[in-house]
Nucleic acid binder design. Structure first.
Lengths: 148, 148
DNA sequence: CGGTATCCCCTCTGATACTG
DNA sequence: CAGTATCAGAGGGGATACCG
């Protein structure tokens, strides 16, 4: 998420409008930036899953593939790289004859995992509530499920 | 996120492989589903921002546009709809001559806001650490920033 | 084993214009 | 004011094939 256009638009809006239309008090903009930053990293399809899988202990590349069903090599590598760059995951390559590489959570990564856990906790506590709401609201839409 | 192909692929992998290769113990799959479900809703560009803005109190459509600089009508409406469907936000339309519509956080929405706040807290506490790590790791890549 | 490179589709997001 | 509809672009993400 976060295309060039988006950044440009936001920047433009801020530069031109912030002083003119008045800033948003609720989102102090620093917070907004933090949200976006974390979300862009964590909001993708696999990061959190990888972190969750890595939490018990280090795993090898192939193990990760096995434990996260549905992920492609491409995405596994890509996500791992991202996590590495952010210092959430540490990569250790052993120069052995059969190459072995292990990925482990860093302390920082474990911290994020804590947050993720609370998120999961919330989700687990309310997911059926959400699903109910969703089903109800969707069927309440005009032209949907009414009769024809 | 979550294309049709992805769902199909995941389904196939699970149906064929789950029993064969063994399931993932670390991500009990229920949790995985929760993560994905919440993330898909919350991981987009605006949901959390909207929730954050709505937290102090109900706002009108135009107010929301003002408070979230950079959002387009399309995205505002779309995100609002999603939030509504999940029961995170309540929409109230007043049948007045100048149409007025107010959006407010539901208790469920406030709960999510709590989580988001902790996420923001974490981000605020570690964002510079992450940025450092990122800068360092990126410049450590072969051929990037080395000298040429 | 552990990755990289390529192709391609699909969804998200934004811009713009129009309606009740 | 509060939306909806259409157009267009960018990037994420999957499948496949190939390399060290």
């Amino acid at each position: 998420m976060e295309q060039t256009r988006a950044a440009k638009a936001a920047g433009g809006a801020k530069a031109v409008g912030a002083a003119a239309i008045g800033p948003c008090a609720a989102i102090p903009a620093e917070h907004m930036a933090f949200i976006r930053e974390v979300l862009d990293r964590v909001g993708d399809k696999w990061s959190l899953l990888l972190i969750a899988v890595l939490e018990p202990g280090p795993l090898r590349y192939t193990e990760l593939q096995r434990q996260v069903p549905g992920i492609s090599q491409r995405m596994l590598t890509l996500t791992l790289r991202q996590l590495q760059q952010d210092g959430l995951v540490a990569r250790t390559a052993y120069a052995e004859v059969p190459p072995r590489v292990e990925y482990a959570l860093t302390p920082l990564g474990r911290g994020l995992h804590e947050i993720a856990t609370s998120l999961v906790g919330w989700a687990a506590a309310h997911h059926d509530e959400i699903r109910e709401n969703r089903a109800r609201t969707i069927s309440a839409q005009p032209g949907a499920g009414a009769h024809a």
